[in-house]
Amino acid sequence: MTYSPRQPSIISRTPWWLLAIALLFVVGLWAITADAGYSQIFRALAGGVVTTLWVAFFAFVAAIVLGLLVALARTSQSRVLREIATFYVEIIRGIPVLVFLFYVAFVGAPWFVSAINVLLNPLVQLGWLEVMTIRDFDFVWRAILALTVCYSAFIAEIFRAGIEAVDRGQVEAARALGLSRWNTFRFVVAPQALRTILPPLANDFVSMIKDSALVSALGVQDITQLGKVYSSGTFKFFETYNVVAFLYLTMTISLSLLVRLLERHLRGRQR
């Protein structure tokens, strides 16, 4: 008779930190559903969840596009493009997100509106368009623009690392076979670089959701701003910020677990 070792249970194989987080989530969910005060706070802040996710998602997609362009410039054979892209990355990464947010909202936005008015002045003179005012540039879009520029510098470095991780010999072989630069990037570099950049890119999206709380400084009605307004009117600071933290934790931890599954899936495919 052969002896087969006893397989460990699912609970014993589950990390303790994950069990603690699950317990914390259950307690928070129970408080929101069972306590009338917490339920009222949750309803007051629920609208901010949509704003937070919308701002983060839109800014992140735009940052990916801009970051890819900057990364391609940084890996370009043109020294001028490399120097300009490097200057952009180093400057943007050296400025705190909140400072850049204020700069875009209160300095960059008026300049942008003035430039638009100068470009469209002939159409305004003909009566086809009206003069654009600073009020027409909503604070939500100013916040999205600021987050896009800030995160594009970090995402550019992720893309650059992924592109440079591809063996140079494969690129030279593709070029020797007659592939154009675009087709070499599309069929040789991009598929391999994607496996490298996906996990850190997903982690950056988690960070984007957390940093989107800074847009409350501009009065954007996200979770943080609604929590600040509600707590200042009811003086329920402890309960309100418990719900604010619970909402952010629910979003960020869920995404973090998805990132872990993605990393495990990619490691399994590479074996």
Rank of each mutant, 00 (worst) to 15 (best):
L119K: 08
F87M: 13
Y103F: 15
W30S: 12
A56N: 06
V50F: 15
T14M: 05
I116K: 05
V97P: 00
A73F: 09
W16I: 15
A71M: 10
R6K: 11
L72V: 12
G67A: 07
I92N: 08
V61A: 12
L29V: 10
A22W: 01
S76C: 01
L72Q: 07
V97H: 10
W16F: 13
A105I: 07
I10L: 10
G48I: 03
Y88K: 11
V104W: 06
R82V: 05
A62F: 13
Y38S: 05
R79N: 04
V104G: 03
R82P: 00
L23A: 15
E83Q: 14
V118G: 12
L19I: 12
V70M: 03
F42H: 01
A115C: 00
L29N: 11
A46E: 00
A46Y: 04
Y88Q: 13
A31E: 07
V49L: 09
A44K: 01
I10M: 00
Q77T: 12
F25T: 09
S12K: 08
F42Y: 07
A44H: 04
S9G: 14
L19S: 09
A71Q: 10
G94Y: 11
L81R: 03
V89R: 06
G108C: 09
I41Q: 01
I64A: 08
Q77C: 00
A62G: 04
A59L: 02
V104A: 02
I95S: 10
T14W: 05
P15Q: 04
I32K: 04
F58P: 02
L101T: 04
G94E: 11
L81A: 14
P110N: 08
Y88R: 13
I92H: 11
F102Y: 15
L69G: 12
R93L: 08
I11Q: 08
V61I: 15
P110L: 08
F25P: 01
A62I: 14
F60N: 09
G108L: 15
L45H: 02
L29F: 14
V107I: 15
F106R: 10
F87L: 15
W30Q: 08
S9M: 00
